[in-house]
Each structure stands twice: as C-alpha cells, then as structure tokens.
Design a binder for these strands. Structure first.
Lengths: 341, 341
DNA sequence: AATTTAATTGCAAACGTTTGCGGGAACGTT
DNA sequence: AACGTTCCCGCAAACGTTTGCAATTAAATT
C-alpha cells in the first residue's frame, strides 16, 4: 500500500518541468534559485507531501543525525531520567536517539555496539554492563567514532566520561550522619568491586577519617545484589549484633528501604536508635515510612551533559579526550535521619 | 579521525582483484560464488573490519529494519516494561528500535511521527499522549506505513490496538473487594475521560451491578492527575464523610498509596476498616505498609505482542486491520485488602 | 574437434540526494 | 557591436549496495 506513492525530488521536478537539482536547491533555499521557482517548488512539495529520504541523504553525507545509547537496564528509574536528559538535549539539537539495553550482559553489549556501528550512528553514549571485563569491542568502536561513557564507567576506556561525584556524595551522606551525632555507622555495599560501589565506599572512609572515627570492618557489609531483599537480611544481621550501629549508610535506596523494613518490624526507632541513609532518590524513598534520607542524582543533567560532550566530539573531529566530568549531587534530608515531629 | 579508513565492498574487491558484485554475493553467501572465493572474501572482510553500510542498503531496499516507538513518558515504570518487551522482541527479529517521548504533548507527538517518517522506519508503535485530540498526523502516517497503537489507545484511529483488558481488570479488582464483604466501595478516577480511566470505571460499574450494589455517586471521586498527592487529598475527603466507604479502588497505584498514607496517619485500620486496591503493580506497591493489592499489567507481554503484530503488518503488505487485542491481567492480593497476620 | 552445459564472475543500472561546474539569457558597460 | 557580469538553472558524478544479465572459463557431451 505504501511504497508506490512516495514523492521524490524527481517527481516534483517532472511535475514542474525543472531539473532535480533545481528542486533540491530550491528546497534548501539556495541563493542561486529565483524566489518564484522556490515558491513553486515549495508549493508542490507540500502538495505532494514530500518528505526527504534521510537514507539517501545520510548515504551521501555520512551523517545520520542519530546517536546510539546503550544502558544496562532501561527499567531502573534512574536510568530513565538519564535517558530523558539525553533525549531532550538530542532533540534540541536535531538528533534522533536509538536506545538499547545490554541487560548487564557484556556480549549483548558488544553486539549492540556492532549494530550501532553498522547503522552508522554519529556517536555513542554507553553506560557499561556491570560485568564488563572485555573492552575490545568498545575500544574498536572508539577508534571509529565518538563514544562517551556515562554513569557506569571504567578507567579502562580512554574517553570522555560523565559520572556523578560518587565519592563526594557518599562523603556528604556519612558526614551528615556524623553531624547528627552518630558514631557507629554501618555501610552496605556491593561485594563485587564495581566502580560506583568502590567510590562510595571511599567517600565513606574519608568521612570517617575526617572525623577521627576508626573503621570497624565488622559493620562493613556487602552483598551480591543490593536489593531490598538483601537490605532486609542485612538489617537483621545488624540488629542482632552485640554492638549495634547507630546508623546505616546503604549504597542503594532499595537496600536502605529493606533495612528500614526490618527496623520497623523490630520496633527499632528511626532515626533515634538507628538512622538510615540511602542513595539515588528513587520514588520509593518517599513511599517508605519514615521517608528516606538519600542522595539525589540529577539524572537529567548527566544525560544532558553527556550528550553535549558527545556532540562536541562529533563536530570537532579532533583526537579523543579522556577527561572525567563529575556532576555534583544533592543530599536530601528526610525523616530517616532527622527527627521531623 | 574516523571517516578515512572505512572498509567498503570496493576496498575488499580491489584488495582481492575481484569485482564488487562478487564480494557482495560472497558475503551474502550466494550459491553462484565458489567456496574458495567466499572463503577469501570473508577472510579479508574480517581482517579489514568490514561493516556493511546500512544506509546504502536501506537506501536501495527501502527497508531500514528499524521501528519507531513513541511513548508519553519514558520514566514510568510500566512504560519501561513495555519498552523492554518491545526491544526484546525486536532484537529477536533483527530490528532496531528508536524510542521517543511525547511528554504527553500532542504537538510533540506529531513532530516525532514526522521525524520517524522521514527516517524511514519500517513501522511505528505509538502510545498516545494523554491530551491527543487532533489525529491528522497519525492518520497521515497510518496511510504511509504500518502503525499500531498500544497501551494508550483511541478508537479514533482505525488500526490494530494492543491494550490490557482494563475493564476486566477493574471488574476483578472490585469483585475481589466485594467478596471480602465490602459493600461501600469508593473509586478514584481521572477527571478527564481518558480511555484507560473510562474502561476501569466501566469495570467498576459492572462489578457493582453484578452484585446488586447501587452506585453512589458521592463516592466516585475524580482528579486531574491521579498522583500520590491527590490520593492523600482524596483520602482525607473520604474519611471525613459521614458515611465512610469500607473500601477504595484507586485507578492508579500512586493514588492508592496516597490513600493508604492518609489512612495510616489517621490510624484507620487497613483493610478491616477500609481496604485499598490499586492498579499497575508498581515497585512502590510492596514498599508501602500494608503492601498494596493491585493489578499486575504484564508490560513485557504487551510490548512483545504489539511488536509481533507490527511485524506482521510490515511483512504482509495487506490492508490495515483494526482489531483490538486485549491482554489479560493478574490481580495480586496483598495486605491492603486481606488480613495477613 | 565441435558443441552444449554448468559453474563462476563481471558489467552496469538503479536507489534519491547533493553539489561542482558549466551554460544560456538578460542586462549593463565600454 | 563586442564584451563582461549577474542571475538562474541543468548536467552529471558521486555516495555503497544489490541484482539482472551477459560474459568468460572449464568441464562434459556428442
């Protein structure tokens, strides 16, 4: 049904008895073409519902005005804010966005990179799969076209990276607990040494050090996935200690919420007995009671900035830089760390 | 840095001293080509990191192997499950996906449709912006290429539509409350007559009728946006009534959670005094205490099925159908409607 | 040895667009 | 009248790929 009645330059040209090039130039408002001709061309183009074939266009110009984005998991709220930022900024600059999900699988991730290369995107925004150990395909891509890492990054890839200032964020979260008078602050982090987890741990350590609090390894807890389930479990571990902590910094809102759930169940008062701080500012953090103190990561902003840097690299065909841009976060203090009523 | 060293068929051809067509055929495993040549071609192609230029390809074949998806808001959890389903199924079939967000703005939506048309996607999956009143661009697109509506749909567009069986879902939710012995069931719906809201309301009405319960308009509440804020507000409205309802069916999890929050604050026991049921099975529904009974919408499945139908329409260049496919939902019973301990 | 057949490969056109270059008409300048 | 400008416009090549058809070679048949 569809393919027959597609309007091309040629069709307009024959219709008007002029050449294809004239039509092309008229439509792009080339000074060589008389106003009258432009008028006529634009008119028939509109009448015939002409839409330029971007394929033919991109085919010639080697520009697709499209960027590719690969994220580990599209269904995390934070991820969707990242995408929002990227898409918004992309649209503002006349770029289309192709989104893919690696599902935290590095093979899938490599495959997606290939596809995007084939597709001829002008640049790629990549947030790494958690398990990435083989960087070959990424480095290959980097040699071919602009690529920027964001959110989940790695020092193994020499390119521009846009991240939140994890260390600083964690530092401030813990600092906040200390200023509240807390002295024995547990942390829940990832077993595996992911970039984000390690940075947040470093922030935790620095806060302790700054305040001359000695590190107690027995309240440094880890788990494979830092989910609500694990938060619940580690919560019970914590309250069954002879020497209970008086605060918990969980590297994830989900885990923090899990902790709160066990504390609630065991009638341990939050924050007076144990205060809790999370990380991400999920929607859930205002659902749980008491509402969760947490770090707000400005996903939109990260996405926005990542796109801007990518655009710059696309336009200036310079050599690749490898600076790291750190976006500052906000500590949002709520009831889980501050007596509200 | 990038554009110079791109491998084309020609490069491989000259390298091997054969013609371009031979290389092309060899790579696509055409029977005309001898095994030895195929071998050599494949080898050099690999060595030179050949990636086919999909633009040249799509340019000739008029097929881009790409579909466009437009959703109102990418950051809703349910939306991301829809996208997940679509992307998964698309990948399985060798399709790329372009995602866009209309931000519930019908002009933006029309613009996105145009862009996708220009881009030459093979088909479009559209979830309508809430405010859509002008269907011109949609109908135009429909005349040009396969388009399927999903989730947020409208009868004004004569095409295949994939939705959840809203009416049935609502019916079962309310039926469940009635079976629990509830007799005076309030509903919180949208002021504006959106498709989804109306269908759910119809389900509510049918459940009442089936059980010979008379409709009491005074406990049919509406609000512009059915957010947690509004849920809280309408919750206070409900409990300040002389003749309080003994259950609330909220058309949205957020609103339901808002209601629970006010009930909790006012020490009204859930579910014994007032039971609450939501709709969507958000993550938040297991964060709130008591955990929320709600309707689980299988987003993945909807996405999957929508893509399949689209693919069918892409392949069979038949005339457009306009059947509606309704996906069944699951009622998930939790503590907000059932005494657990 | 001559002819047919089969197996490989190359030629060239086509897809829709952009763009450097050249050409004709109209006008003004010597 | 001859020349130079300026203003419009068309020709044709190019982008990388696929594909119908023709061409070449080798093998098989007579």
């Amino acid at each position: 049904m569809s393919k027959k009645n597609i309007t091309t330059l040629k069709k307009i040209a024959t219709e008007l008895g002029v050449s294809i090039s004239t039509v092309s130039r008229a439509l792009s408002n080339h000074p060589d073409i008389s106003d009258e001709t432009k008028q006529r061309v634009n008119e028939t183009a509109k009448r015939l519902h002409y839409v330029p074939n971007l394929f033919a266009k991109g085919f010639r110009s080697h520009k697709t005005s499209t960027i590719g984005v690969i994220v580990p998991d599209i269904s995390h709220y934070f991820t969707s804010t990242l995408l929002k930022g990227i898409m918004q900024e992309a649209e503002l600059n006349g770029y289309k966005v192709i989104v893919s999900e690696s599902r935290n699988n590095e093979y899938k991730q490599a495959e997606m990179l290939q596809t995007m290369n084939q597709f001829g995107v002008d640049g790629i925004l990549l947030s790494l799969a958690r398990t990435t150990t083989n960087f070959d395909e990424i480095l290959n891509t980097l040699a071919i076209r602009p690529l920027i890492l964001f959110d989940k990054v790695s020092t193994k890839v020499p390119c521009t990276q846009v991240v939140i200032d994890e260390e600083d964020a964690a530092f401030r979260a813990v600092q906040h607990l200390i200023q509240l008078g807390k002295k024995r602050i547990a942390i829940i982090k990832e077993t595996e040494k992911s970039f984000n987890s390690e940075m947040r741990y470093l922030g935790y350590l620095r806060a302790l050090k700054t305040n001359n609090i000695e590190l107690d390894e027995s309240i440094v807890l880890s788990s494979e996935d830092i989910s609500m389930q694990q938060g619940k479990r580690l919560g019970t571990v914590l309250i069954s200690m002879k020497n209970r902590p008086d605060a918990v910094f969980a590297i994830t809102d989900s885990a923090a919420i899990g902790v709160i759930k066990t504390l609630n169940k065991n009638k341990i008062s939050i924050p007076s007995e144990i205060a809790v701080v999370g990380f991400s500012n999920n929607i859930s953090s205002i659902i749980i009671e008491p509402k969760l103190t947490t770090i707000d990561q400005p996903g939109n902003k990260i996405g926005e900035i990542a796109f801007r840097y990518l655009l710059e690299e696309i336009n200036n065909d310079t050599q690749i830089s490898n600076k790291t841009i750190e976006i500052k976060t906000n500590l949002i203090v709520r009831d889980s760390s501050f007596k509200s009523d």
